[in-house]
Design a binder for these strands. Sequence first.
DNA 1: CTATAGATAATCT
DNA 2: GATTATCTATAGG
Length: 188
Amino acid sequence: MDHAIPPHYFERDALTVAHDLVGVTLLLHDTGGVIVEAEAYDHTDPASHCFAGRRTPRNASMFGPPGHAYVYRSYGVHWCLNFVCGRDRSGHAVLIRALQPVMGIEIMQQRRGAVPERRLCAGPGNLTQALGITGELDGKPLTAPPFKLVARPSHVEVVSGTRIGLTRGVDSPWRFGLAKSRFVSRPF
DNA sequence: CTATAGATAATCT
DNA sequence: GATTATCTATAGG
């Protein structure tokens, strides 16, 4: 029996949610898989878009209600998917960085081109391309279609490390992954 | 396998 | 005008 993720799941700080999301299954329409890599960001974090509570048109949904998506464009090219969380709308979010493909693998392969399955959803930009995620989903609730989230198994071994691709906040170990997974964007 | 270089254009100052 | 929560190709071990 599948257990859906309840809305209050996201009413916690980004670090806690990022840790707990490892092993959760993320589905969008008929594609998706198991979250094997996620990173936490919040308003105390120099690497975050909403550091010190700074608001811009782009990051508006990061200050919106928890349990919703924050989708932004990275390097002007790639879409990146975040889960907004926190209890006080102060700017907590978790960047989904990699999935272990489970559902709709052929569809995702068509969208991504000829890449090995272990690279299909490895990296935030690759993941959104595989699932067909665009800015249209920014601000949409994660607890309603087209999203579906399924709770993880009871025993999941989670590892942590420093985040990827940053110039600030480089030492914070706010990257979480599924131990020994070969679907992560980079080894831990 | 790891490391680095270059492309790329939206976003922000 | 500068920066960037990335990606791919390429060179080297």
